[in-house]
Amino acid sequence: MSTEHLRLLARVARMYHEQSMRQPEIAAALSISQPRVSRLLKEAVTRGIVRTVVVLPDGVHTELEEELQRRYGLRDVVVVDIEDAREDAIPSLASAAAAYFDATFTGGDVIGISSWSETLLATVERMQPKNTQVADRVMQLVGGVGSPEAQVHATRLIGRLADITRARPVFVPSPGVVGTAAIRDALLEDPGVVDVMAQWRDLTVVLVGIGSLEPSPLLLSSGNAVKQADQEELRSLGAVGDVCLHFFDAKGSAVDSAFDRRVVGIDVRAFRAVERRVAVAGGLRKYSAIKAALDGGWVNVLITDLHVAERLRAEAS
C-alpha cells in the first residue's frame, strides 16, 4: 500500500473523528465522493488506524455483566454497585430492578411474580405507572405463605404491579403451604386454583427472589418462615435455597421433599418453561443460593450486587 493512500486514510480519519466533520464536508474539502469517504473510514478501522475504546463510568460494570452472562449462560445480568458488603442491598437492588423492568415491559407480557419478597415489593414501589398498558396479566406464582398476613402482602405486591402496568391481576385462591400433601392435592382440584394453573402456561416472564434455607429477618419476624422441622428435613437433603418455595441443592438440582409436596404454586416444569425468568437477589448471606440457582438454570436474568457478582465470577465452574 502506498504512503499516499495511508496518508489519505489518516487524514480522513482525523477530520471525521477529531475535527467532528461530517462525511459530506470531508468529501467537499478533499474533492472526493461521499461513498469513498465512507469506504476510507471503514478501511481505517480495519487497518487499526482508528481504534474504538469504551471507558466505563464509575459504578457501571458492563464487562463483569457480560462475563457472567457467558459463564452462566444467562440472557442478561445487571450488577449494582454497593460499597460495603455489609450494607443492606435491598434499596440499591430495588432501584436497579425498577429501572430494568420499566425499560423491558413494553407490551403484551403475562408477568408472574413470587408472593413473598421484600426486594420485589421495594422494586415495585419504585416503578413508575405507565401511560399505556404494557402487560396483559400479573399473576401470583405461589399462594399466600402460611397466614392471612402473607396473603395481604401478596395482594399488595401483585395489585401494585398490575396497577403500574395496567394489567389484570390474577391471584392464587389458596395458602402457599398447607398441612399435608392430601390437602394440597385437594386444593389443586379446586376450580379457582385449576383456572390459575391453566393461565400459568401463558407466562412470558417471571420475577422472583432467591431464598436461602435460613429465612430472612422479615420472613422470620412475620411468622411465615418454613417451619423448623421442614428446615431440618430440607437441610438433611442438601437444600441451600429456593425459588417460589421449590428448594434445590448446591448444584441447583431440585430437592424432592415432603415440604415440596405441600406447596400450592407453580410447579417446576411450568416455571422452567417460561422464556424469561428474572431473579432480583443479593447480599453475601444468599450467595450459595444464588450460585446454585444459576448453576441449576432456575433463572436466566440476574440482578445482583457487585460483591456477589465478583464472587460468582471467581467461582464460576
Rank of each mutant, 00 (worst) to 15 (best):
D84H: 11
V240D: 02
H246L: 04
L284K: 12
G107V: 13
N224H: 13
R166D: 03
I158M: 01
A167M: 03
D260P: 01
L68R: 04
D136F: 05
L121W: 08
I26W: 01
I26S: 04
L213W: 01
P217G: 08
V196F: 00
R276L: 02
R168K: 14
L220V: 06
S33D: 13
V110K: 07
A198P: 02
L207G: 04
L312Q: 00
V145N: 04
L237K: 15
T123D: 02
V78C: 04
L64Y: 06
A13C: 11
V274L: 00
D163H: 14
D230V: 03
V12R: 04
V54S: 11
K251Y: 15
S317Y: 14
D88T: 13
G241C: 03
L9D: 12
D256N: 14
A27M: 01
M139A: 08
R126W: 01
A44T: 14
L220A: 15
V240Q: 03
L157D: 08
Q151G: 10
R47K: 15
R313K: 12
K291G: 11
Y287E: 05
D267M: 01
R201L: 06
E83M: 02
V264T: 09
D76I: 09
V53E: 15
R36M: 07
H5E: 12
A239S: 12
G265M: 05
G73Q: 07
I90W: 00
L30C: 06
F247R: 11
G108M: 06
L121Y: 07
W298T: 13
G176Q: 08
I26Q: 04
P57M: 06
A314R: 12
V78R: 14
E315T: 15
S288F: 01
R261N: 13
I90Y: 01
F105A: 13
E233A: 03
P91C: 05
A225W: 06
G265F: 07
K130S: 15
S174P: 03
A89P: 02
V110W: 05
L120T: 12
S317A: 12
A85S: 13
S31R: 14
R11M: 06
K227M: 12
T123Y: 03
T119E: 08
N300P: 04
V79R: 04
G241Y: 02
Q140S: 10
K227V: 13
C244L: 03
A316E: 02
L68C: 05
T106W: 00
Q228P: 00
